[in-house]
Design a protein around this nucleic acid. Structure first.
Lengths: 203, 203, 203, 203
DNA sequence: GATGAATGAGGATTCATTCAT
DNA sequence: AATGAATGAATCCTCATTCAT
């Protein structure tokens, strides 16, 4: 492929950028930092990415993919079926929190970035939906679920709800310190709804 | 007092500034934000403070004083004498971590700001030394300590060591994510040394 | 007089301001410098003077008066009548040059300040005219001048011409370095015209 | 060469900047002035220079190099060997005075700028040392000097002394008007020492 | 693909000046 | 008379972004 080399370079930039963002935070990282780290003129970065924000997004996406893979591997070893699902969402929220802290994002930036963020997650979400649907299917095959529902649809709904609660929590946090968003509340709300849904499926 | 009004205004500015720094972080907060929040031209801020950094420092100092007061009240209710001292230092480190996260400071900034930070803490430290010395004195009066040492000196030394370990931890963190500084290691080291010192006093 | 105290204070401010302007130049001297030097709040300066420029002008005026007095004393001892007049104008130009350098004025500032400058000199000029007229009168009494001209008028004209030539020189200096204005050319031109006028009077 | 164009532009900026500094002085010259004079956005200046000060320094350096070249050409035609050396140092001091006046620098600025100034002159000084050493060598070849000293070393020492006396003079001038520094005293001191050294070489 | 060069949009800081008391 | 407080208008400098080559 013509683009294989380009992809490698893109990848390399992202790795260096991730280090920079981690060290200095999103704001303090200037494109010259990333350029120097990747041994190229900062203008070249614009050949591979639209702008600083896109670089950041791509960094987060890469981290996400790694994380989701980890997460799914981990969840497979968790107790029974209910717990698998619940802990999946719980860990997922925990991860979101970590990313926010990791890059020292403030609430203001979060609000601005979130839409792009979510757009980016679309891709990841396909994986997520598939994974949850898979868990549900396995449960169904063990006769744990009586539902006739489309399981992918259910999985998507669960994710939708989880995301909605997360966003809701962030948007409520107007006056609070960014990382003081009370994720534990969001966590409980999410757990509760997910369990309700699962109960519904088991009727 | 001539300066009472000015002091109130200074105080007011600090409260508004604290909100801004909390919301946006140190970097993203621009003086216009603080000015608008405090209903004044940003140039006026320079009448009350030397520069942005001084405003930030004053905010942190105010938070510190509040925190130290809280902390000391809380520690009084903690189990026995040893535990009081140990938990004092543990909580103190936890607070430092919180401040760093609270204002989304990166390692790079930390290094730069730390000296000013510490200078500022001089005042707070007098309170801290007095408090620890008091705890030690009470223990001595209960014949828990046999030492003839000057207790304020001991208190000062404990603080010195705790601070040194904290700084050491930060300076080691060159390549790590700012908030990923491993405070738990620092915490253990600090606990260990403090207990050693206490043991020495009890010989 | 009510204003005697105020006059003393004004005088004191001017002395301190002169030191400041001398040390730092017009631009670099800030009102806080003058205020501190005169032991008063900078706002108070505005009670005594309209603005920074007026302080500067007053400083220059005071220096001028001192200088003109000196000059006139000195000239009295100079050789014959012609030489007295010529050296008066020559020294006068030399003084102007000194003031300009002394306060590190640039050509740009000079252009701006000149009108105010000249307005200020009006007062001084009365003294100057009187002095030159006196020299002329003495010459007339010794029958050195046959003219029927009004001698004050002649004196005034001489000053007018001298000033005009000086201004002309400054305005020509657009592209030159401020203090590189070629005063020697102006000096020669002035001498020449003054001598012509004197010749005319002696016909 | 890759940088030839850039060097030309740098040069062009310096020429325009020199005009501005000459017209308005260091303080009054704003970067917009230089930018406009050089037909570019002021931000572009930062592509070629680190800051305003560096531009100024570069202007002075360029002037210095031109001057030193002139000076050396001129000195070659001066009478005998002793006179060549003495007049070199005398002219050199005269030049320093001119630069200071030329840019309307106040004593305060001089103190601040001097270190950078001297750092910049390091380069020029190599040329100066070589030139003086050459004069000494020629004298030696004519058997005017009996010394076995390293002549470059002697040349360097002479420059060192001349600079030290110059600095001493500036630093003494605390309360004086900047351009009223009494260079004639410095000149005499320098001459005296240089002649002493030359005498020593002729023993 | 890559980069040297250019720039507009800010952001911190300074300072002459004003005004209420 | 005096001043604490306030501010608008600069001014230096930074940085993401663009563009011609």
């Amino acid at each position: 492929m013509k683009s294989e080399k380009a992809d490698n370079k893109r990848q390399f930039i992202l790795e260096e950028a991730a280090k920079c963002f981690g060290k200095y935070g999103y704001e303090k990282t200037i494109l010259d930092d990333i350029g120097k780290a990747a041994n190229m003129n900062k203008a070249t970065l614009y050949y591979y990415f639209k702008n600083k924000e896109e670089i950041f997004m791509a960094v987060v996406l890469a981290e996400s993919e790694r994380f989701i893979a980890d997460l799914q591997a981990k969840v497979k070893d968790v107790g029974n079926f209910d717990q698998k699902i619940v802990s999946y969402f719980s860990e997922r929220l925990h991860y979101y929190k970590k990313v926010v802290n990791l890059h020292q994002l403030s609430v203001a930036q979060l609000r601005y970035i979130q839409p792009l963020f979510d757009e980016l997650y679309q891709k990841v979400q396909q994986t997520e939906i598939a994974f949850i649907a898979q868990l549900l299917t396995e449960a169904q095959q063990k006769n744990l679920l009586r539902s006739q529902e489309s399981l992918p649809k259910v999985a998507e709904t669960m994710l939708l709800v989880a995301n909605a609660l997360k966003h809701e929590g962030v948007l409520q946090a107007k006056e609070l310190y960014a990382h003081e968003i009370d994720y534990s509340v969001i966590d409980q709300q999410t757990n509760y709804v997910i369990l309700l849904i699962l109960k519904g499926l088991q009727q």
